[in-house]
Design a binder for these strands. Structure first.
Lengths: 239, 239
DNA sequence: CGGCGGCTTGACACAGCTCAACGTCTGTGG
DNA sequence: CCACAGACGTTGAGCTGTGTCAAGCCGCCG
């Protein structure tokens, strides 16, 4: 059941059968959320962390003028609020952008892991710092790339991450977001997002129909995005 | 010598004398860097992490058109590349924006802490997730705030963080950056940064002369920024 | 079949960029 | 101690990117 998490970890380091077993044993209470439902609300202090097993979710903040900024997109295998284990309080909400299947790890159990399983602890720590690396990449894209490049970059990133957890087939992946949600992730208006999408479509770089994205020309997309997957740390080494 | 780090930690949890001592013992080899010198270079794999003891440093990335984006500003007490302990490879550079004094913690010693000191490990983990929280706040500011509000927010954040490590007196702090560097942090052009600064000056919110920032009207600045320091996690609780 | 949510497009306004010129400060060498 | 060079800051003009508003379209679901 926690295969995507194990896939995420095994893309970065070896994980013993015993460690995988241990993780399995503390991730419990499977639950479904509907589209637009909050998995976690801003300001809450959940005594557990949430592992996404299927679907797409987003971390977001609403600012005072009512605008929303999405700060991260999450897919199967992502521990969406693992950072709340050291942090305790959620400084943002997490919403399901599609139907989501999740399971939970109690913070008490995570504390026990941190007391007895140093290697596993470092792997969980690793997951949170990769989140940070992705945040930095988003900052760079928002600040210093064209919107076209930024959008292409986001698709490249999702493609690479979804591949790791086996959610890509025939260069396609399920992507049931609305354009407004994508606009909120890039920090631009809906209208401008729509026009930016057309730029990518005009280059025959990708297609997005029936809630499915198909990469038509990976080289072109990668080049528009100036995409370098290094920040995702997709190579096995001792951590 | 590592007082600012201890101040940072004690603003978030209790740290025993023994733990402080232990940290002290692994943070070694003090060194100075001149302005514009790289503390850490992109792509390197340092076998140690760098604690900033004095000065201001920035994480940055250069994109292909030659533009630079600063993704984080660091001050005394910040472990500027602690995330490279789990990550191993630096996906960005870190540059001194003023003369900097630093010291180093070998990754071997950090591994030993992760094996024997679960609480201290969680505290170090905490520092990296607070970095992540700051990144998210920057994403929100870049995407959904006006530039004036974004700039005010950055000053509010620095003010709050510098206070924790005792670098604020009389509502003033040393801030020897150039306007180009600030522009690179906000992701805007130098000219526009200059004009945005004037907006804050016109409101008598703050003053920035002789490499020193003085907050003239904290309430107004906070209000322009819609600043809520929650994300900095400046309260003591068991982690 | 009708209504609604989401997508698309065009017109226009304005925020932010680039270019270019000029002002100001500081450190250095004569 | 002064003169100067170079780096940094300031300002204006004109152009481009992005936002807002508004209308129309498409496709799905009740």
């Amino acid at each position: 059941m926690i295969e995507p998490l194990i896939a995420n970890l095994r893309a970065r380091d070896t994980v013993s059968a015993r460690e995988a077993q241990l993780l399995q044993s503390i991730i419990v209470r499977q639950r479904r959320f509907a589209t637009d439902e909050d998995l976690v609300t801003e300001g809450s202090r959940p005594p557990y962390s949430t592992l996404l097993l299927d679907g797409i979710a987003a971390r977001y903040r609403i600012v005072e003028n009512g605008k929303r900024q999405i700060t991260a997109l999450h897919i199967a295998g992502d521990f969406v609020d693992l950072h709340a284990f050291p942090l305790k309080t959620m400084d943002h909400g997490i919403v399901a952008l599609s139907p989501c299947l999740v399971a939970f790890a109690d913070h008490g159990d995570l504390t026990r892991i941190s007391e007895n399983e140093p290697h596993l602890t470092r792997l969980l720590w690793l997951l949170t710092v990769i989140d940070g690396a992705i945040h930095r990449e988003w900052i760079v894209a928002m600040g210093r790339r064209s919107k076209k490049s930024h959008l292409a970059h986001l698709f490249c990133e999702l493609f690479a991450r979804l591949k790791v957890v086996g959610r890509v087939s025939d260069d396609s992946f399920s992507f049931p977001l609305t354009q407004q949600e994508l606009a909120d992730a890039l920090g631009i208006s809906l209208v401008h997002l729509n026009k930016t999408l057309r730029l990518l479509r005009n280059e025959n770089a990708l297609q997005w129909t029936q809630r499915t994205v198909t990469v038509l020309n990976w080289e072109r997309l990668e080049q528009i995005a100036e995409f370098d997957p290094g920040y995702l740390n997709l190579h096995v080494e001792p951590r």
